[in-house]
């Protein structure tokens, strides 16, 4: 009788990683209208409301037409919120339903676990951003001053929020907890960190505090990619986003490796 030997893999379980990633992507594509189409429509509505309500009062921001200034901010905000929603909801639902064991049992290491979830979140963030951007380009003139910055910030911001979503999802024990984090942390930060205005409009101490807010660098850097103008030095933005992502990866990896609130 022949017994099938266990599958072997090297340092990284590529098949496991790929399948967990596919599961994450299919999870949101399955409810495409809610996870992609809905945020796109909501973001376009925001563009309409804010340009109509503020268009006459704020014609330009530092020489850029208001709508052109606003559009990149709204795109990155949608990307951030959806990258966060993807990882956080996936983990909380799996924990509550109990099917998280299906991911904890197989030979998938903590690093592979984090990578698969985060890449799933990044995929949703980038997809939402892409569709929103396409939709907006029908109404707003969008220059592409520095495409490299657009790409870097699109990926690094989605990654940052996907990681935050993982941390939030692992920490939450109920839907209430993650809903509270979304409503009281993620939404205010993504609203008030420069999506709608240049931070030079902020009074002190909020102006100085903005320089310690990674959400600000995410929005500012992404917008710089489009309009070529920024509040902070764009190179500083690259450094901050890289640093924050590395730190968050380490925390997420450590939490998963220890099984914090994942393994009893």
């Amino acid at each position: 009788m022949q017994v099938a030997s266990p599958r072997r893999f090297g340092l990284i379980n590529w098949i496991g990683l790929w399948n967990l990633y596919l599961k994450e992507v299919r999870r949101f594509l399955n409810v495409f209208t809610q996870t992609v189409a809905a945020p796109v429509v909501t973001t376009l509505l925001f563009l309409a409301i804010f340009s109509l309500a503020l268009g006459r009062a704020v014609e330009t921001v530092n020489g850029t037409a208001f709508a052109t200034f606003l559009a990149p901010g709204l795109i990155i905000m949608a990307m951030a919120q959806n990258a966060f929603a993807n990882t956080s909801s996936s983990i909380v639902i799996s924990k509550i339903q109990g099917n998280i064991v299906d991911v904890l049992m197989p030979p998938i290491s903590a690093g592979e676990f984090v990578a698969a979830y985060v890449l799933g979140g990044v995929t949703r963030g980038v997809l939402v951003g892409l569709v929103t951007g396409l939709g907006m380009s029908a109404f707003v003139e969008l220059p592409f001053a520095h495409p490299g910055f657009i790409l870097f910030h699109a990926v690094s911001s989605s990654m940052m929020l996907a990681l935050l979503g993982m941390l939030g999802g692992i920490w939450s024990e109920k839907f209430d907890h993650i809903a509270a984090v979304t409503n009281f942390v993620i939404t205010p930060f993504s609203f008030l960190s420069g999506t709608f205005y240049s931070i030079s409009r902020l009074p002190e101490p909020f102006y100085s505090a903005a320089y310690f807010n990674p959400f600000f660098y995410m929005i500012d850097g992404f917008r710089f990619g489009f309009i070529g103008q920024s509040d902070a030095n764009p190179l500083l933005g690259l450094a901050v986003m890289t640093g924050v992502n590395v730190a968050l990866w380490l925390v997420a990896w450590r939490m998963t490796a220890r099984g914090y609130k994942l393994k009893a």
């Binding site: 009062a57 609203f191 205005y197 409009r201």
Partner: peptide, 17 residues
Amino acid sequence: LQAALFAAVFLLAAGDK
């Protein structure tokens, strides 16, 4: 909360103008 956020954004974006 949503209304407060909108109001804050409107005021900050439009400000003295």
